[in-house]
């Protein structure tokens, strides 16, 4: 974990209002493992006391990339960053995805720009698998070429039917599962809105899939001190305990999360 001033290498339009921010972070980038995040102090937001957490989309040597959309005060301000600007970055942070095991079939499930948090995993998997991407509309389906070029099969769902199948991502998963003949056990990795994660988790528990979800909670310090980003996690004694999504998470085994309480 480092807290460093890093330089913006590039910022560009990605698609549909999504943007790609590339940072020169020579100490941090090489240490990022799939599912981890960085905590960004956004410049020109002096009235803002909190950093903003972002999944790391890609790393390449000394650089790391963040895929985001300017929707809130922080992300809209980020859109003004230009090559050469400096910002303070803490990272890599959090407990990422466990590495896919040989002999298991990897399945990715992403909603919104959740696929950004899954790219590093897809790239490091011992064999390509299948990726289910869901979004509201065609512009929300991102990175399809990037995953396909790693050999993954990508199945798309949009709520308005403008790209892929009309519906939600779990509809497509259910149909795929219903006709699947391969007997390799699944390893499922999911990132997206909470309702989607819960729907994936319920299927995983019913069908005995190993599944990990990356949760998105309001976050404060990012390093485990402030206890803002907690969620209820089951304990061996049948009780539950608050766990920090910044420290014990953001990735949890879906069986450990106390879903009904959320």
């Amino acid at each position: 974990m480092y807290c460093q001033t890093v330089q913006v290498a590039d910022q560009s339009e990605f698609q549909g209002g999504y943007r790609l921010l590339t940072l020169d972070a020579p100490d941090i980038a090489p240490e990022v493992s799939p599912g981890q995040f960085v905590h960004v102090r956004i410049p020109h937001m002096e009235e803002s006391v909190l950093r903003r957490p972002f999944s790391v989309y890609r790393t390449e040597g000394p650089q790391l990339q963040i895929l985001y959309k300017g929707v809130g005060k922080g992300t809209r301000t980020m859109t003004y960053l230009r090559a050469g600007d400096e910002l303070s970055l803490i990272g890599p942070l959090g407990n990422g995805f466990p590495a896919p095991q040989p002999g298991h079939f990897p399945v990715l499930v992403a909603g919104g720009y959740g696929m950004a948090a899954l790219y590093l995993l897809a790239r490091s998997a011992p064999q390509p698998g299948i990726a289910f991407f869901g979004g509201r509309s065609a512009p929300d389906i991102l990175c399809v070429d990037e995953f396909e070029s790693l050999g993954w099969e990508v199945r798309m769902t949009t709520q308005d039917g403008t790209r892929g199948r009309a519906g939600i991502v779990t509809d497509e998963i259910d149909d795929w599962w219903a006709v699947r003949s391969d007997s390799q056990p699944l390893e499922v990795y999911a990132c997206g809105p909470n309702a989607m994660l819960e729907a994936v988790a319920r299927r995983a528990m019913e069908r005995d899939w190993q599944a990990w979800v990356s949760v998105d909670r309001n976050m404060g310090c990012g390093v485990g001190a402030c206890l803002t980003c907690v969620l209820k996690v089951k304990q061996p004694d049948g009780e539950w305990a608050w766990k920090r999504s910044c420290k014990e998470g953001p990735v949890f085994d879906c069986r450990d999360i106390l879903w009904e309480e959320d």
Partner: peptide
């Protein structure tokens, strides 16, 4: 002590509102 339910903090202008509840 477990502390309060979430959300526990909210950012406001030049400040942070919290009700962590001393977990």
């Amino acid at each position: 002590t477990k502390g309060n339910p979430t959300p526990r903090t909210a950012e406001v202008a030049s400040g942070l509102l919290n009700a962590i509840g001393l977990p």
